[in-house]
């Protein structure tokens, strides 16, 4: 049991537990904050997986932008007085039965996935002695994945338009 393992176990436990709390908490503000906890832990997990750049992105984009957006919306909608209402949908038990069966077969079938990892053959290999992880990412991002990169940019642009369009003056919508 080395330090790496200990850190991983802590992170895994914390992420699982905080996300579990997120989906059962009654108050949406709490739920979003628990997701925030999970995401911060995940950022650290990405650091242990060797990518400091992704750690930064995770914190800036996820924690800094997305989750703040969630919080804004929660405050805007202002749900506190409805807190005493039910958390889960009605007749959840039926769904839960399906869910359990699903879990069973899911894990049965996906056992092979765990064996896949080292079998992957690197298509775009990187070598940390030739430069940092960030450098390698940049190299491939602006050559091999350039098109996808542009597409993501377009998608984000469209999202901005979409959000503005959806939330323009509601009188016009009807």
């Amino acid at each position: 049991m080395n330090w790496n393992m200990l850190i991983f176990l802590y992170l895994a436990f914390a992420m699982s537990f905080s996300s579990f709390l997120a989906i059962i908490s009654r108050n949406p503000v709490h739920a979003v904050l628990w997701v925030l906890v999970m995401i911060l832990h995940q950022a650290f997990l990405l650091y242990t997986l060797g990518s400091e750049f992704l750690t930064a992105v995770q914190i800036i984009v996820y924690a800094g932008a997305v989750l703040v957006l969630f919080l804004f919306v929660v405050y805007m909608i202002n749900l506190r007085k409805e807190e005493r209402w039910k958390v889960f949908v009605r007749r959840s038990s039926y769904g839960f039965i399906i869910f359990l069966f699903f879990l069973y077969f899911f894990f049965k079938n996906l056992a092979f996935l765990t064996a896949l990892g080292p079998a992957f053959k690197a298509q775009l290999p990187y070598d940390l002695s030739q430069g940092s992880n960030l450098l390698w990412m940049a190299r491939y991002l602006y050559s091999h994945y350039l098109f996808q990169f542009e597409v993501i940019g377009c998608i984000l642009l469209v999202v901005i338009f979409g959000a503005v369009f959806l939330l323009r003056k509601l009188k016009e919508v009807g």
Partner: peptide, 20 residues
């Protein structure tokens, strides 16, 4: 684990997609 950069880049794209 596979020493392949694609995964990281997909993570990058995923974060963008999640934001969208």
């Amino acid at each position: 684990h596979a020493k392949d950069i694609s995964g990281y880049l997909i993570v990058f794209f995923l974060i963008g997609m999640a934001a969208a």
